[in-house]
Amino acid sequence: METQQELDYKRIAEAISFIRENFKEQPGLDETAEHVHMSPFHFQRMFREWAGVTPKQFLQYLSVEHAKAILKTTGASLFDTAIESGLSGTGRLHDLFIKVEGMTPGEYKNGGASLQINYSFADSPFGKIIVASTNKGICHMAFADEGEEKAFAGLTAIFPNAHYSRIVDMIQQNALFVFTQDWSKLDEIKLHLKGTDFQIKVWETLLQVPSGGLTTYANLAKKAGYEGASRAVGTAIGNNPVAFLIPCHRVIKSTGEIGQYHWGAIRKNAIIGWEASHQNR
């Protein structure tokens, strides 16, 4: 049975999809509310509770003009000063709390035969997720749009020989604080990832993009040390094993268009707008 948070997100996603598909007509509050079968009053209230801003303000954060402004004003410092700045706490860079440890060659090759993996399901502002951890950190996080059974099958496909327990542990609970925006409660998040050296370098570089910030594939490739390899970097981004924590949603086209996303373009729009709204509150 779906939770209220899941139902709210589905309506938010449906509204975002409707507005973006009909942006030339600039649909108003009444029209959008009618599309999601709600009264304007209740839709506006639900949207504000979810995003912290009105639907109109939210869509402004998803405009090409806004994206270009973010890229222009943050491009120089997006990576170079994020880690050195030491920013932390509520509304700041949760990325500073995250450290990456790659799996050993043995763990990588044998499908995680030596790993004990705990996993659980949780609600997020963007739908139900599966989150999994080893004793070293989060190894997997994905949106469970097709149900818990398929989400678990996706996890076991990555680590076919691991030992699994459906347990909520402290590593998972700590990581989930990022969705509350109360990062004062957040201890250090560690990631334990299965990937090539190239992939892990790209993912580490992604972690330096601050919440509310954006970058392009070309800029990410350059900062990762692979200038001119935007396509290969894009493939590594698409193979990101940890949704949201590794913020592949913050990579957009150089034109300012939001672009595609492994877990759906509408969800990418929702996450970018949600992060922007929280940075501007």
Rank of each mutant, 00 (worst) to 15 (best):
Y9R: 01
L29M: 10
W263D: 08
G264C: 07
S230T: 14
S165L: 04
Q181A: 09
G273D: 05
A122W: 06
E31W: 02
A15G: 15
G225T: 04
L78A: 07
F47C: 07
A243Y: 13
A113I: 09
L71I: 04
A142E: 15
E107D: 14
G89K: 07
F58A: 07
K72L: 06
H37E: 14
K72N: 08
G273N: 04
G75N: 09
L93V: 08
I252P: 10
S184Y: 01
K223R: 15
R11K: 15
P241T: 04
Q199F: 02
S230R: 12
E148D: 07
G86D: 11
S230M: 11
Q60R: 05
S114H: 13
A13N: 06
D80N: 15
P27W: 10
G238E: 08
L191E: 04
L191M: 14
G52C: 00
Q5C: 03
D145G: 11
W263E: 06
F97Q: 13
I98W: 15
G89E: 06
N118C: 10
T73Y: 03
F18H: 11
N239I: 03
A175V: 03
L71Q: 02
Q208Y: 01
S120Y: 11
I129P: 04
A142H: 14
L29F: 03
N22M: 06
K10M: 09
I200Q: 01
E149P: 00
G137F: 12
G102N: 03
H262K: 14
A175M: 05
K99Q: 15
E84C: 09
T54D: 00
Y61R: 05
A276I: 01
K201Q: 11
A144P: 02
Q279Y: 06
L220H: 09
